[in-house]
Nucleic acid binder design. Structure first.
Lengths: 200, 200
DNA sequence: ATAAAAACATACTAGCTGGTATTTTTTATA
DNA sequence: TATAAAAAATACCAGCTAGTATGTTTTTAT
């Protein structure tokens, strides 16, 4: 049993270091050597646990990227309370809580999408799955808001969900280009405006 | 004079082929060999015209990416007519006019932003310049709409401009993950909703 | 205690990377 | 038409790439 624990621990470390490097440098520019160096391991160890670089990429998406989006943007949506307040809080809190590091490097998911989103179907479906889960959670919340009569009935929940996600991911990329938060604050104003119109 | 013409023609061809390859495969994954092969030239020719790969990247952004955004999204904004109609038409026409190739590969600018936006300041400022020009043109149009009383006075033109750009760039990335246009149509619904609230 | 298997390390490969040095070809000018 | 300069081609390099083959060490099971 000690062996399996050790194996899991090693894989965890590889995935962790890989995520960080992919986030900072990009997937394609990060070599397996970079990863094993950061994880204080050797290539032999890596290829004992992973078939190839693609598998590592997929596992990073499944375990790290997915969890990040889930914890930050999806889970808070199922909180109790006024759906409009939850919607506002989730998006605004997330944006406002980002440290400089995260602002500079953008959204890990969006980085993957734009770097390898048109690369291979395996990556596509892994990333699509995260987006779809996010979208579904938003739709559920918006529908609840409609039922509880705090969100207008005559709007498409799907459309709102997709537009919210698009703008969020878009600004996460654009923010990389700037050195200050002006553009982020303008996004926040735009978001508030968008959310206000949804109120019943 | 024939010499300079030849030189310019060669550079044009290099930039053209480089743009296509960067768009399809990404900047970092495209090698100089790939570029000269596509341009039916040799490495010697390339390095006679360009100092290094970075300079090629910058020239592709300046000449190709910039022009693309300018022609498709910025120039139409200065048309005469109702600002709200222009806003709607520009965004919707653009989205609807994309062939499969463009839907699959996303927005060249957004690809660059997310692939090398946190890489070097030279890239950052080149890309930022495009975004700023786009943003400024949108603000001008929205302000005109306010003056002509077809757009609400009490909204921030900057905020709307940034939110529009963010959502557009965001969906261009997300669309890569899908095989059909459902997500694009949902974005369009969300966009229409957003634009409708701006009307005075 | 020992054999097998898992975990990890070392050493290596073929092919590609950006970039350079040098030569050949084309063009401009006198 | 000779000569200089620009344009382009050829041949090369050191360093890196994903991945492999083959060792050594550690853990597990008997």
């Amino acid at each position: 049993m000690q062996q399996e624990l050790k194996s899991q621990l090693t894989k965890q470390q590889i995935v962790q270091e890989a995520f960080t490097l992919f986030y900072e440098k990009g997937f394609k520019t990060t070599s397996i050597n970079d990863v094993v160096k950061a994880a204080k391991l050797t290539k032999g160890a890596f290829y004992h646990h992973y078939k190839n670089k693609e598998q590592l990429g997929l596992e990073v998406i499944e375990l790290k990227v997915r969890k990040r989006v889930y914890d930050g943007m999806i889970l808070p949506l199922s909180d109790a309370g006024n759906p409009m307040v939850i919607l506002e809080k989730t998006f605004l809190n997330r944006i406002k809580s980002f440290p400089f590091y995260d602002k500079q490097n953008g959204c890990p998911m969006n980085n993957f999408i734009n770097e390898i989103g048109n690369y291979e179907t395996a990556y596509q479906s892994a990333l699509k799955h995260i987006v779809e889960t996010w979208k579904a959670a938003l739709i559920t919340l918006i529908n609840r808001g409609k039922n509880e009569k705090c969100i207008k009935q005559n709007i498409s929940s799907e459309a709102v969900a997709v537009y919210l996600i698009s703008a969020f991911e878009g600004i996460r990329g654009i923010r990389k280009l700037y050195n200050d938060d002006d553009i982020l604050n303008q996004y926040i104003s735009g978001l508030k405006l968008y959310l206000n119109q949804l109120k019943a």
